[in-house]
Design a protein around this nucleic acid. Sequence first.
DNA 1: AATATTATTATGTATATACATAATAATGAA
DNA 2: TTCATTATTATGTATATACATAATAATATT
Lengths: 230, 230
Amino acid sequence: MHPYEDIRATILERINNQTWPAGSTLPHEEQLAKEFDVARGTIRRALSSLVEAGLIERRRKAGTRVVDRRSHMSTLNIPIIRHEIESSGAQYGYKLLSSDIHSPEKDETGFFKTASLKHVLALHLKDGRPFQLEDRLINLTAIPKARDESFKTISPNEWLVAQVPYSSIRTYLRAELASALDVTHLKITTGRPVFIVERQTTLKTVPLTRVRLSHDAAQYQVVTETADVT
Amino acid sequence: MHPYEDIRATILERINNQTWPAGSTLPHEEQLAKEFDVARGTIRRALSSLVEAGLIERRRKAGTRVVDRRSHMSTLNIPIIRHEIESSGAQYGYKLLSSDIHSPEKDETGFFKTASLKHVLALHLKDGRPFQLEDRLINLTAIPKARDESFKTISPNEWLVAQVPYSSIRTYLRAELASALDVTHLKITTGRPVFIVERQTTLKTVPLTRVRLSHDAAQYQVVTETADVT
DNA sequence: AATATTATTATGTATATACATAATAATGAA
DNA sequence: TTCATTATTATGTATATACATAATAATATT
């Protein structure tokens, strides 16, 4: 449609048919601009789109190189569980299980160096049945107003997203056997696997919150897709 | 450092301190250009960077709105297992377990509509111990040269990445109990959880390959991080 | 009131030009 | 040879201008 899209498509084709194989260097912007008879800016538009897709890499003076696709980048999207459940047409339910204020020792991982912490345990239900167990620590030093929030009607997850700005989130995905808490609250039998999403949220090096979200493995999986550059 | 970075930072600050709360509309480009005393292009540079980070959304005529951060986008990177193992300083090993050509019925999921398929089972080892079991189906109609590849010295994963261009990959991450094959080849005990990465690769609607990668849950987890926009 | 048509407008693309910058390559000094 | 210094150069940023486009808003038609 737009010139830059056509240019991107033919560049992509040349990468795919090995005219420019992985590791090779592309002609520089002005040469491409001359070949396609467009301004340099239009070439830049096409190339930066391919950078975003992870197909090429560019460095000053070194030029533009085709990435060796030995790893696949894709965007992972983990929504707030209420939205995920509701958008599937099911009924969402929430139940606070416990909420306490702890001293820093509670944090075995060393994520919170030193801070007073709030520990919240809550359950998210799908059509009345347990779906996600939220086990969370909140840094009260960084988020003092969390001290006065009961989390009886709103989940920590949702409250935090609405109230607290963050700069980066690290997410771990793993499989585990159901813990005693998982068995009790997710109502699954001992020996069943659970899918764990653990998140550590920070605001410019300040640890804000850490959460372990556990799910019955039979009811939960994560799906992700690469951007389809055509 | 660069003007657009300063501008992006102050816009980000206004989003974080609720000057422009989630859902609100930002001034349009020319107004911002006037405020910051730069050209419209510089404002566009700052804003498009925030679009990439998923913090704002832009639509023609409607303008620029602050995204309601109810879901977190992060980039997921699943490398070829050999690179992951070697970059951790460990010794990589590979063993082909079986390789057969099947009729389409083998594909229960309906991913390959109709095609002759190659079924390959292979094991990836870390320091001599089983680490990842690769259970793969390859579309021989789309990738005929895979028929003559034995996969005795190179894994299907690596061979495909090097030989076959693709346009999109869908990845499923889930937890399961170890299957009979997992128990046998990953040398784990029955009843242990495994972490499954399942990938479906296509080239413009043509299904190319589907793979189930299973790992001992105790030895494998996926880590992902959001882009830290400052 | 509901639908179709037509402005309107903020974002998007394309152009040209000038200069900045980072990283490599070339050169010179030890 | 090795290290430090200095070009060199491809990408990156900033500018200004013109026009395209999609989506909303306003108007007219049924």
